[in-house]
Design a protein around this nucleic acid. Structure first.
Length: 363
DNA sequence: AAGTCTATCAACCGCTATTAC
DNA sequence: AGTAATAGCGGTTGATAGACT
């Protein structure tokens, strides 16, 4: 025999809370605390179920709730954490004092998600959207080809934002001079990444589908293990040069302000063998300060080989540091409104897609 | 001014893990 | 140990306000 039922659902009020109900709930919790949600409505004189009371309190009435718009730092923190945690809103909220999981979830769905889509970033994988890039079949069969190639080159100009390997592959796929063998291999590689993306997404956990950060196209596609947990991020086919390695953070290039050498010229040879390129830390805002994948953040595993992932290292980044989030932002403070922010972002990300492609259809 | 569309967000629903009995 | 309630979580809905035609 278990517990008695929490409440009689008949006759309980639903819908928006009135100020009187709010006051009753606040008064009761201030006096007695919120120990037992089951009995709370009865003693507080509310015709609500305990679950509704709990939700109202935790999402709205709690005194430490921070109201108002999200700061840039909060937004960036949400994006970073989401890229690691996926839709674990409560875990994300735990890193944002005063914000509730519901609020963050709503903000993600109504603002950030759309913004990332406009920027050509898949909000689920945080990678460039493959559906935008996989235009080769359309373009190569038309006289738009030359124009598209030019635009792909421009896309490649923003490779600090977008995964350079993916863009390179996309361009490669569009090249009429490519050798058949390379073509097949590249397509295999790309298709497997697409498939892996689907696989990860379909598992309901936002598992990263990182792409090899190397100038070398994969010459050998290795078997792809399934991705089944947060701690075992989707593996990917690696080139011979970019084997799975464990990157000791101390061994990272000291100067991360210019990653072109490090990122573009394969991985330093002095790295140990556990490196998994979890995800590039794309700089969504284009700030110089975050241009490079941070050695402190998510692309690196802990040096401790027993840990497949170090959350401590992730959440200790500057932008997600416990310092007050309402402190003045160092990123794009000059943009005070969301429109300004988006304008700023779109200036950074001038993706030129031929008008005839009706890019809106992909958005 | 009226009707329609769109964005927002509080609240609910359904599920799972945990806990009390 | 088994059962059922509770707490908490993520997904979804629907009321509302504001923008647009």
């Amino acid at each position: 025999m278990g517990r008695a039922p929490c409440c009689d659902k008949n006759g309980l009020k639903k819908g928006p809370w009135t100020p009187e109900e709010d006051q009753k709930l606040i008064d009761y919790i201030q006096k007695h605390g919120c120990g037992n949600w089951r009995t709370l409505p009865k003693y507080a004189g509310l015709q609500r179920c305990g679950k509704s009371c709990r939700l109202r309190w935790t999402n709205y009435l709690r005194p430490d709730i921070k109201r108002g718009g999200f700061s840039f730092e909060e937004e960036e923190t949400i994006i970073q954490l989401h890229s690691i945690l996926g839709n674990k809103w409560s875990a994300i909220a735990a890193r944002l004092p005063g914000r509730t999981d519901n609020e963050i979830k709503n903000y993600w769905n109504t603002h950030i998600r759309k913004k990332l889509l406009r920027m050509g970033i898949d909000p689920v994988t945080h990678s460039p959207r493959l559906d935008l890039l996989d235009l080769s079949s359309i373009l190569s069969s038309s006289d738009l080809y030359n124009q598209s190639q030019m635009n792909m080159s421009r896309l490649l100009g923003v490779q600090s934002f977008f995964n350079p390997e993916l863009l390179r592959l996309a361009t490669s796929l569009m090249s009429p001079q490519r050798e058949n063998q390379n073509q097949n291999q590249n397509q295999n590689f790309l298709l497997q990444n697409v498939e892996e993306n689907r696989l990860c997404s379909s598992q309901g956990q936002n598992r990263y589908q990182p792409l090899v950060q190397s100038n070398h196209l994969p010459t050998q596609v290795q078997e792809i293990p399934s991705c089944n947990s947060l701690n075992t991020p989707c593996s990917i086919p690696f080139s011979n040069e970019a084997q799975v390695m464990n990157l000791n953070v101390d061994q990272c290039p000291s100067n991360l302000t210019d990653l072109s050498d490090w990122q573009g010229n394969a991985i330093p040879s002095n790295l140990t063998e556990d490196y998994v390129p979890l995800m590039p830390n794309y700089n969504y805002y284009g700030s110089d300060q975050t241009l490079a994948p941070s050695a402190e953040t998510s692309i690196f595993h802990s040096n401790n080989s027993n840990q497949s992932f170090s959350f401590a290292s992730v959440i200790s980044t500057r932008s997600s540091s416990p310092t007050p989030l309402n402190s003045s932002s160092t990123y794009i403070n000059s943009c005070s409104t969301e429109d300004e922010r988006e304008s700023y972002c779109s200036n950074i990300l001038k993706l030129e897609i031929p008008d005839i492609l009706e890019a809106n259809e992909f958005m």
